[in-house]
Each structure stands twice: as structure tokens, then as C-alpha cells.
Design a protein around this nucleic acid. Structure first.
Lengths: 342, 342
DNA sequence: CTGAAAGCGCTTACAG
DNA sequence: CTGAAAGCGCTTACAG
């Protein structure tokens, strides 16, 4: 591995250290350290002024690694998401970073796709950086990747998904699935398909359960034919859409448990020459800005991600007595969810 | 600030250190350190086996902060982007993270929006973590935020934008703007509007220049009325679209220098009851997956972000003799760019 | 190959 | 308020 070098090929200028500042200011290292300690009340003494001036002048920045080694905490929160290219996850992360920063913490993010192996590696990597806590938006029900965290006593909370025992902040997925389906029922639809997502994730399972509940309540029965399991990615939604549209008696409305999946359904629809909002109703989940810009914007169940982020970090800090926080989702109806014209 | 505590309210279990491993394995710390050093050839000796077993058993993970303090480098590359919610940036970051990891580096990302102030703060923050190098996708022509990096001798490269002097990896924006416009001209359009982006960024300026070049070459003249400056966000593209559509003699085709801006134009079009691909031609830049899923998918000029990422990190490592790497963009025509029917 | 020792840049009792 | 000293967890000449 090459050493990183700057444009002149010379090695980096040594960063300015406490020692440098101390020497120039003519005081001891300890004093500089204390004066520059952001946690202490700001001294207004003469030498304090001077030290600050020197530090600024020399371009001193505290070495956080060294500092945290001594302080015993890194002031860092690790965040793990499947993909940053999933806009929902990107929004969640940006909100988390904002809240964390506001609390004096720095966030570090890692992505792991939908791979268990990658997830373990990513957690290891974050742990190696001695994060003070971890927020996971990746938890699966079929595998316990949080066991190690529990053993080590590293605080963590799950976001958007739960394993039903760890501290978590989630939308009420059953309710979300319920209102989505209910909305379609109210519009007169009786054949409602669902692109259900994977069965290892609490959110897709909950939303599917809500879907079923609404159907039963309306006196309809759950038809396995209309319920297509999938992964979370676009292609998978497209495939599921294909299956549904190819049915002899195809659904007049579709609930996709994720926005990405809804987009996949739209893509599949195009190949069948069907237009959402005209030939069938479509509703997704977790609204992202782009969805509202579509010519037939996708109806959506919405969860406030800023609030999720806020609560997730609060839970990481807090006394953790209330272990699972549930946020109520709300419905955003749009052109894509039209009434049934039978 | 609360101290982070685990679910039982107790403080973290102390992490396993080299000392612990050494004690259990019955050897010195130095020995363990060397055996576990991933850069050294893997020893197959008896004690090496034992130490590795113990380390694994105890769940040892090297404290990277402490390690890098001593090693004199953190093995970390800092990445700065305006927004991770911008899919182009999210893709770029994921690619950068992948390449970096492949080279044994860890990436840390920060976002700074379009604010100069935030940009400086983010750079400070990354510097405080003693990153070994920095990749910036935010450089503006109207402000020198890289000055400090130069002074400190921290290696950095710019990605997707350039200040014309720092090491950078960019698409050939002039060419990109040229082929986009050329495409529309070839379809018979003569009144072509442009949503030009901000004037502080090399990419929007280059693309606009390419637009102008193609017009001139075709014997048309550049009309300031058809060239709308904007920021990079969706709302800004929407506003620009409004201006263009409200023109008495409105353009039959529009080139938006960014995908986000193209989406904004689509949104504006909706309010005028215009459909891209039917009532006007539309072409964007920097293809993101969602664009191809739209009912009238947006035509696009495409840059391979994986290649940009690869080159950016290579430049960070390399001898930096070739300071500005240019990647040729290519055209992805789609339904949204239709021929002119006058 | 192995271990004792110094030191990376910082913080923090401790004593003045 | 100030400074000398110990130590956070690691790595690395140095000597055996």
C-alpha cells in the first residue's frame, strides 16, 4: 500500500499539537489542554485568551483519536444501514447525523446491503473504531447480529425495524399496513394485491399483517395469490408486479410495503401498458421526495424520519425503560390511488 | 451530556485489550501485537496459533484509534458531499467506500449542504479525526476551502467538480453539455432552454458552455432568455421550469444540467399540463436509477461513478503527476427526448 | 522469535 | 489557576 503523499510528494506537515501551542504560548501542556477543553466553562483569564489566540493562529485542532483514547469514549455513534442509495436510509442517516451532532456526537456510517456476512463485518469495523453506541436499521428477525453487542455491553438501538426485544424506534407497521389497505378498500377496491417484502424483517411482516387485518375486517379474505413475497430492491418489486399483473383476474389495487417496491411495480406496469392512477391504484410506504414528482405521484404511508432519528438517539442516551418506541404513520393519498371503476 | 449506558443501566464492559490477550496466552504484549498485525506476514508458529485462538476467543478487536495514534496514520479517508439524499452523491460515496475498503482504508463521510460555513466546519471535523486524505465533491469556484488542506499538506482530491488546480476527477462537462444539446438539435429542436445550475460550480459552468458551443455550431445563437441560472435543488429546478414554460415563445426542449433539476422541470411541466416526451423534450445529467422508471423516463448524460470513485482514490494514493482526470460522458436517450414536431 | 521500554497526543488526579 | 507525572491501548526500535 502506498503511503498517502501530498501533491509535492512530500509527506504531510506534522499536525500542530498541544505541545506546540504550549511552547508558543509559554505555558504547560496541561494548562493548554484545560483551556481548550470544550466541556469546561470557558475561562476568561489573560492566559486563556492568549492560548486560544495561539491555538487559532497555529491552526491547532485537537486529535480526537488521542483525546478519546484518554477520555475513555470516542464521542462517536455508529450507524448501519443497508444502502445509502436507498433514499429513505439516506434521509434517516442525515437526520441521525444532525441530532447526534447537536448532542456533541459524531456519526460514522457503514452499509452492508442485505448480506448477513457484510452486516457482521460492518459491525466489527464500527466496533474497532470504538463507537460509543450503535444505531442499526438492518436488524433481521432470522439472525441475531446483536448478540455480540449485548455481550460487550455496547449500547445500541434499532431504527425502523425491531427484533421485539432490543431498544427500537419503529413506525407502527401493522397500523401502517392497515391504513394503506383501508384507504384502498374505501375507494371501492376488493382485489388488492400486496408486494410484501422479505419475511426476515419486522417492518414488512407488520405491514403485511395490517393488510390482512384490514381485509378480514372488510369481510374479504386473504388470498395467498395476491400476496407476493419479495426482497427490498427495485428489481424484486418489478418481478412481483409482473406476477400480479399477469394474473388472470388481476388486482385493481396494489400495496407495496416500500417505496422502492412501488417504483418496481410502476416499472412492471409500464410493460403491461398500465398506468397507476388510471388503470390501477398504487400505494407505497416511506415517502421520499421524488415520489411526489412523478406524473402520477405514488400514494404513500408516511413516517417522520426526523422524529425516528431523534427518538433513536434519545433511546441510546436515555434510561431505556421504554424500550420500544412506536411512531404512528400517516396516509398521503395521491393521484395514484384512484377509486375502483368496476 | 448523559453517558451512554447499556440496557441494564450499567456502564460498558471494558473492551478486551492486547494486555488481556497477552495475559491469557502467556506471552508479552509486544508479541501479541506483532502476531495480530495484519500487515506482517502471517506467522504459523505454535504460539502464533495460540495467540490468535485466544484473541478470537476473548473477542478481541484492535482499538483502531490507539493503533493509528502510534502508527501515525489513521487509515481513514474523509469524504465530503453536499447531501447523501442526492442519489448521485450516495452512489459516489458507496463506490468510494468500496474502493477504499479494497485498499485497506476506511471512509468517513460528512455532508455540508450548499453552505460554505458548513463546508468549513465539516472539513475541520474530518481533520480532527486525522483522516489520511480527503475527497471533496463540494468544491466551489468562488471560494477556496482547500487552502487549509494545502497548508497542512493533507492530500485531497476533488470529485465531479474541479477548481482547475487541485487534483480532480471529473466528467468532461463541456462535452457532456455539448452532446446533450447536440442530441436535441439533431431531433430538430431550435429553441432549447437550459436550467443552468449555479455559477460557482465547475460542472454547471462546463455543461452550460457545452450547450452554448453546440448552439453556435448549429448556427443558432445563445439566448440569455432561455438560460436560467439556478441552485442544485429540486425547488430551484421547478422555479426555472416555470420561467421557461411561462415564456411567450417557450422552448420545445430543455436541458437541465442535473437530474434533480430535470425532476424539478417535470414538476413545473405538470402545472402547465405539459408532458415531457410529448409536449417538450427533456434531458438531464448524471443518471440515477429512478429516472429510468418514470412513465416518461428522462434522457440523460451519464458518467460512470464507479470509475470516478476508482480514479479519485488512485489519485489520492498515486504520484499525482496527472492532476486532472477527465472522464468522457455518454448519452442515454429515452422517451423524454422526442423529435420536434413544428 | 521474544520482551522491556519508549512514545503517539491527549487528559486528569495530584500537589503546589 | 498552574505544572509534573501517569496512563489510555497500541506499535516499534532495541537488545537479547
Amino acid at each position: 500500500m502506498n503511503k498517502l503523499t501530498n501533491s509535492k510528494g512530500s509527506t504531510n506537515t506534522l499536525p500542530v499539537t498541544l505541545k506546540d501551542v504550549a511552547r508558543v504560548a509559554g505555558v504547560s501542556i496541561s494548562t493548554v489542554s484545560r483551556i481548550l477543553d470544550e466541556r469546561l466553562p470557558k475561562s476568561k483569564s489573560k492566559s486563556a485568551e492568549k492560548v486560544r489566540a495561539v491555538a487559532k493562529n497555529l491552526g491547532y485542532t485537537r486529535d480526537v483519536m488521542a483525546s478519546s483514547l484518554r477520555r475513555g469514549g470516542t464521542g462517536t455513534i455508529g450507524v448501519l444501514v443497508p444502502h445509502l442509495t436507498d433514499t429513505v436510509m439516506a434521509i434517516l442517516y442525515e437526520e441521525l447525523a444532525k441530532v447526534a451532532q447537536h448532542n456533541g456526537y459524531f456519526t460514522v456510517v457503514a452499509t452492508c446491503g442485505d448480506s448477513l456476512e457484510e452486516e457482521e463485518k460492518a459491525i466489527e469495523s464500527l466496533l474497532g473504531r470504538r463507537v460509543d453506541g450503535l444505531i442499526l436499521a438492518t436488524s433481521r428477525l432470522d439472525h441475531n447480529s446483536t448478540g455480540k453487542l449485548k455481550d460487550l455491553g455496547i449500547p445500541y438501538t434499532l431504527a425502523l425495524r425491531t427484533d421485539n426485544e432490543s431498544a427500537s424506534v419503529v413506525g407502527n407497521d401493522i397500523h401502517g399496513g392497515y391504513i394503506a389497505t383501508r384507504h384502498l378498500l374505501d375507494l371501492g377496491h376488493t382485489r388488492i394485491g400486496i408486494v410484501a417484502g422479505p419475511n426476515y424483517s419486522s417492518n414488512s411482516l407488520g405491514r403485511t399483517k395490517g393488510y390482512e387485518k384490514a381485509l378480514i375486517e372488510a369481510g374479504l379474505k386473504f388470498s395467498p395469490q395476491l400476496c407476493i413475497q419479495s426482497r427490498f430492491d427495485f428489481e424484486s418489486g418489478e418481478a412481483a408486479g409482473h406476477v400480479l399483473f399477469a394474473l388472470e383476474d388481476r388486482p385493481t389495487a396494489i400495496f407495496a410495503v416500500t417505496d422502492n417496491l412501488a417504483l418496481g411495480v410502476m416499472s412492471a406496469a409500464k410493460k403491461f401498458n398500465l398506468l397507476p392512477g388510471k388503470d390501477f391504484a398504487l400505494i407505497g410506504y416511506n415517502d421520499t421526495p421524488v415520489l411526489s414528482m412523478l406524473p402520477t405521484p405514488i400514494s404513500s404511508v408516511h413516517i417522520p424520519l426526523d422524529f425516528i432519528a431523534y427518538k433513536a438517539i434519545e433511546l441510546l442516551f436515555g434510561d431505556r425503560t421504554q424500550n420500544i418506541v412506536e411512531v404512528m404513520p400517516s396516509l398521503i393519498p395521491r393521484y395514484s390511488s384512484i377509486a375502483y371503476k368496476g
